[in-house]
Design a protein around this nucleic acid. Sequence first.
DNA 1: AAGTCGGGGAC
DNA 2: GTCCCAGACTT
Length: 337
Amino acid sequence: MPWKGEKNPYKIWLSEVILQQTRVEQGWSYYEKFISNYPTIQQLAAAPDETVFKLWEGLGYYNRCKNLLFTARDIVQNRNGIFPSTYGEIVELKGIGPYTAAAISSFAFNLPHAVVDGNVFRVLSRLFGISTPIDSTAGKKEFTGLAQLVLSKEQPALYNQAIMDFGATVCKPALPLCNHCPLQQQCIAYKEGRVNALPVKEKVLQKKTRWFTYFILVAGDKVLVHKRGAKDIWENLFEFYLLESDDKIIWDKATAQTWLHEQFGKNATAVNHISPLLAQQLTHQTIKAWFIAATLAKVPANLQHYTWHPVKNLPVLAFPKVINTYLQTGAFQQSLF
DNA sequence: AAGTCGGGGAC
DNA sequence: GTCCCAGACTT
């Protein structure tokens, strides 16, 4: 891995947070951007929220970015900029759980704490033939204990790297390379033909579909935007004027004009463009979104939580992928002329 | 203990 | 489509 041998706790922390539930290939360019823009934790702590969220844009799980900033400022302001060097202190930091604390402890400080990530769950469940669900409380406890037991106390950093590397390249989720596996003879799952049945998960994802209609409302050279709040997807990302509906809506210029007229009265002057239905697949949700570009004659007074933002400065805001997908079609920009 | 949070890649 | 990813937080 590219950061093999890295000892700087700031860099290790940053890379581990970026890689939470994220493939190395997906997260690596973000790590390089962050290190390039913020070589030290002091520089990250001093950066404006919006700039950092724009850097994080597209990586997902935006709470990680919020907690990253919180912890950077926490360390700079309350710990003299010195990253704590014990597992107990590290795991108390916001956005750092058992996995990330063990990773930092072992990689930066060579402390004997075993990482337990998706790779480790898979390798241990197969090697030892354990079918306790990994997403149960009992499973987490059992696998954490086992990981700590088999950890090399002499070389914890090397061992942690190795077991995750092994899980990512040999003991893979699908089509594991059992024929070339050096642990084949010791592997209980291989012996019993249960490799593809392990590890076990007990929870089933509940999926739902949500219907978003975004009205891109322009008045003069400004457009109405909104920073999304907590307890929903895309916290701290921006969006346009949103109408969420329980069911699919068939929009055409007439229905859009009518709806705008009901909301804004004579303010709503023209519907300039209606996009086709765009879809974005999230882990728990399918978002189906339309974008309707319209012009307002003047600024409505009673729009709480929304702000007017210069159209030409839209690129400084961090948007969800489906919004960027629409913006990149160029249809909105064309509708302005 | 259960639910929630993104986006991408492999199959 | 389904699963999974160098998980953590909230309720």
